[in-house]
């Protein structure tokens, strides 16, 4: 006999898997809720822009300032833009974006769908001739899948700008030289895998938020728990996906 905790865990995994496969089934069926999708894109993408931009800017600035002393020690100060741009584009900007979104969007979706669940709004949709999975889940997950990569690209740009300012706090790197060095350093194998993985980050954040919301237990406590679980699980998933992505790019020889 399996321990009760393991049974619960495996059941949960099975439920998440079923919920996820349903996404792929439903997205192929006709009637895509385009208006709702746009609305969700606005909330998920546009409304997170400020937060993502501020975080990315600070990360770019801070990473640059922190990396400088070590490079100076080796007399390799001129390598600052190269080193910082690679770490920002490959890793920091996409992961920071995903984590911010896991926090903001994941909890938002978890709480919104959770409260819709407990106040029977999801059932109400179903009796109003609407497939709630399509209307609520597919639109949100599609929105996170498409918006997080865009946010990540913008975060790349903003964090590189932050790094530019960071390089100029103690040293002098001209605007032209900075961007020249950045683009001479970056290659497609830096950008492509890092953008590609953000699609998966988006999918994980969206689907976990929706799953937690849809399976919210009755009462306000259940809603809170859904929001919390959405953040915790999607943040963890972001790191796991990142780990897998790094392994794959490494195996593909793109490092």
């Amino acid at each position: 006999m399996l321990p009760a905790g393991l049974v619960r865990f495996l059941t949960e995994i099975a439920e998440v898997t079923r919920f996820t496969t349903k996404f792929f089934r439903e997205i192929l069926r006709p009637r895509f809720e385009f208006a709702e999708f746009l609305r969700q894109c606005f909330f998920i993408g546009y409304k997170s822009l400020g937060l993502v931009a501020i975080t990315a800017f600070i990360m770019g600035l801070v990473i640059t300032i922190q990396s400088r002393p070590t490079l100076v020690e080796f007399g390799a100060e001129a390598w600052l833009p190269k080193m910082v741009s690679v770490s920002l584009v490959r890793e920091i900007a996409p992961v920071i974006t995903a984590l911010i979104c896991a926090g903001k969007i994941g909890s938002g979706i978890g709480a919104e769908l959770g409260s819709m669940k407990v106040t029977e709004q999801i059932d109400a949709m179903e009796v109003s001739g609407t497939n709630p999975y399509k209307y609520l889940v597919v639109t949100r997950v599609m929105a996170t899948i498409l918006m997080i990569p865009i946010l990540a690209v913008l975060a790349d740009a903003v964090s590189l700008y932050g790094a530019y300012l960071g390089s100029n706090i103690r040293g002098v790197v001209s605007w032209d030289l900075y961007w020249n060095q950045v683009f001479a350093t970056l290659t497609y194998s830096d950008i492509m895998p890092s953008i590609l993985k953000t699609f998966f980050f988006g999918f994980a954040i969206g689907i976990i938020g929706c799953y937690q919301g849809f399976n919210s237990k009755k009462g306000t406590e259940g809603v809170g728990r859904s929001a919390n679980a959405a953040v915790v699980i999607s943040s963890l998933l972001v790191f796991i996906i990142d780990l897998i992505a790094v392994q794959i790019t490494d195996l593909a020889g793109l490092t």
Partner: peptide
Amino acid sequence: GFLFQSNALYD
């Protein structure tokens, strides 16, 4: 028609 216990108005 179905009138829900918690009204289920879309917030």
